[in-house]
Design a protein around this nucleic acid. Sequence first.
DNA 1: CGGAGCGTTGATAGAAGTCAATTGACGTGG
DNA 2: CCACGTCAATTGACTTCTATCAACGCTCCG
Lengths: 239, 239
Amino acid sequence: MPHCLKLNLSARDRLTDAECAIIDQMGARQKLVPAKHDIVREGDIPTESCLVLSGFSARYHLLANGKRQISAIHVSGDFVDLHSLLLNEMDHGVVALSDCQVALVPHRMLRELTETEPHLSRLLWLSTLIDAAVHRRWLVTSGRLSASAQLAHLLCEIFLRLQVVELVDGNRFSFPISQVELSDALGLSTVHMNRTIRDLREHELVSWKGSEVTILNWDRLAEHGDFDAAYLNIGQQAR
Amino acid sequence: MPHCLKLNLSARDRLTDAECAIIDQMGARQKLVPAKHDIVREGDIPTESCLVLSGFSARYHLLANGKRQISAIHVSGDFVDLHSLLLNEMDHGVVALSDCQVALVPHRMLRELTETEPHLSRLLWLSTLIDAAVHRRWLVTSGRLSASAQLAHLLCEIFLRLQVVELVDGNRFSFPISQVELSDALGLSTVHMNRTIRDLREHELVSWKGSEVTILNWDRLAEHGDFDAAYLNIGQQAR
DNA sequence: CGGAGCGTTGATAGAAGTCAATTGACGTGG
DNA sequence: CCACGTCAATTGACTTCTATCAACGCTCCG
């Protein structure tokens, strides 16, 4: 059930019944990728794109110095390598943070959409544009915010993105990511990551036990992370 | 002459004569934006997208703490706010680093292209995908490289992007950006930026006088910045 | 039982930020 | 022609943030 992709897109624009039908077909071929395994490998030249139906995943880059940087975190309903439709080869990998159910959508099918379904194509384009907007936001927080503000911002972002696909429960959500992975996402050391999480806890902005995160005070968290949701472009609108 | 957009796109895929003709029309309405002035302002809801014909520009974000972060540097032939075609409102501004000649392309015209010119549409989509790939690369360097490696990487990237639009002269190019702006792009303080530039000079990787940059040793510069050009997707290919 | 992965803490080193001041290039106006 | 203001680049001194190294406890699982 690629229901979550429909949620994702229809949070930005109204989908016609015909478009919904097309999206439903995309879920045809599926596979389960266990946690810690690659969904796509760096250097691959995929012939299909992966739509994550459930689970958390991340795009990662390995460096010559042995370090790793995560450049995006994906949730249900995200097309993790839609860009491979037009780009040469994967310049990064995508790893499953938790077990992930993914649908494999052939490029042939997507390319045909670009020929015959302009509106749906624009919405797919849009989803990559939102990816880019998220990248920019991460650049801003990474360059100009303290570690704890950066983390606060990330939590706000993940919360809203999960809300779109109906995966939040009140102010609580499941965020199955280790501190090592988090530190790779924020460009910090694991030790400092740990202390940064402790900071947010001690300031009673969030409660975080295992993979269960509860936002205790949204307003203060958002203020601390200088968070403004505009870049997520949540809101139906003709596109 | 939006010649540079044609260079930009045809570095990635062959353009038909018909497509070239369409692109030529895009240069119709132009304006000159002086250095330090905004090309697009944060909060704008543009009805046209700006194609930079000449000059350097940058996307920037202002933070509540008064700091600024530059999330992208654009060169001739870049469509600096193509994404405004599908996104709500500008969540960042675009400033001219040097005097910029820009062409204003109405969204109406671009939207029509998405209905009638699937191949050209894919190439426009592609250019936003490359933007995103650049964002990811910046995230990686910002998170996991030293300041001097980050700068080395940026110089390699700018060099290749300028090469595509035929704006390099041997191993020299014009890079009219102040140290304040550079520091906002790399997320550093201006003081540290200055010392980082000095580092590259002292290691004889680059020579940098005013806005003239000469790469003295490409291989060592690229190695220092852990640079791999793959993410720029330079190379003609059916897309 | 023992290792592996993860979270946690302390101590220390190093990278980068901040504050402050100087220099040089340039343009303007008296 | 020179005083003056402005802006960019530069340097020094000091502070703060984050990385690194090392160690320990916990849980899960072979």
